[in-house]
Structure formats: C-alpha cells, structure tokens
C-alpha cells in the first residue's frame, strides 16, 4: 500500500469556521461532545440536528449542511445549553452566528413571512412576539 495520509490544518471550510468563531465569540474546538446541551434543550424534539451535533459540524466547517438545518430556526436562545455546558461554550451564540450568517449573506434567507399570516393570527399577537420573531428570523 502506498497511500499517503496527509494531516493538515487547512480545510475547505476553515474560513467559515473562523467566521462563526468570530461572530459567536466562541472557541468551537473546546467542545468534547458530552451532549449536555442536547439533553437539556427544550427545543431538541423539534430539531433535525441536535445542538452537540451542530457544534461538531461547525468544527468541521460544514457550512452548507449547517445553514440548511431546521435547528437554527428552532433555537430560541433560551440559553439552557449555555448555562449547563461544562466547557463554558455558549452554544446559543453559535446558533445565533449561524442564523445571522444565513440572514446577512447571499439570498438573505428570511424565515418568517409576517404578511402571510392571516389577519386573525396577526391581530392576537402581542408586540413582544412579533418584534422578537422579526429580530430573530428576518434580515
């Protein structure tokens, strides 16, 4: 066998990793996959990829897959993961960085079309709901 295995720090997604680390202010490699974030996440049941898996994918720079997850739009920044992470990683900040990346760049991928709600649905909503939803889900 003359296969050469080259181990290098240069990866395709490394600029994406750097950008997520910068926007979130977190060191992704601090995560050792204990899973505590996913265990306590109240929204995990509604996610397609669990929070600890999201962090692993972020370490690996899997930009396309991450930005296509349902999970980034299901996280509501309740910060339970942050307060329980034994490594002090602010997982919710990483999710925010991913959401912002989807909202800031390219097609400005809004995940709430407020005008598509029925007038009845809109009329009962308090401002605290609409303002927070627009802050979190629209560009």
């Amino acid at each position: 066998m003359d296969t050469t295995l080259r181990i290098t720090s240069a990866r395709d997604g490394s600029s994406f990793v750097a950008s997520i680390e910068k926007i979130s202010g977190q060191k992704l490699l601090a995560c050792y996959q204990c899973g505590k974030c996913s265990a306590g996440c109240p929204m995990a049941a509604h996610m397609d990829v669990l929070p600890n898996q999201m962090i692993r994918m972020a370490q690996l720079g899997m930009q396309k897959q991450l930005l296509a997850t349902r999970s980034i739009w299901m996280c509501v920044s309740c910060l339970t993961c942050n307060s329980r992470c034994p490594k002090g990683i602010k997982i919710a900040e990483v999710f925010e960085a991913l959401r912002r990346t989807a909202l800031r760049a390219g097609q400005r991928d809004d995940h709430l079309k407020i005008m598509e709600l029925t007038p009845e649905a809109r009329s009962v909503l308090p401002p605290i709901a609409t303002i927070s939803a627009m802050r979190k889900l629209t560009s």
Binding site: P42, C78, T80, L117, L125, T130, S132, K136, L137
Partner: peptide, 11 residues
C-alpha cells in the same frame, strides 16, 4: 424554568 418556545409562537 423550561422555555415556552418564545417567538416561534408567530410562525
């Protein structure tokens, strides 16, 4: 102390 789902109530 478990989150109610917050702003997801809109959409």
């Amino acid at each position: 102390a478990e989150c109610c789902g917050a702003h997801l109530t809109v959409g």
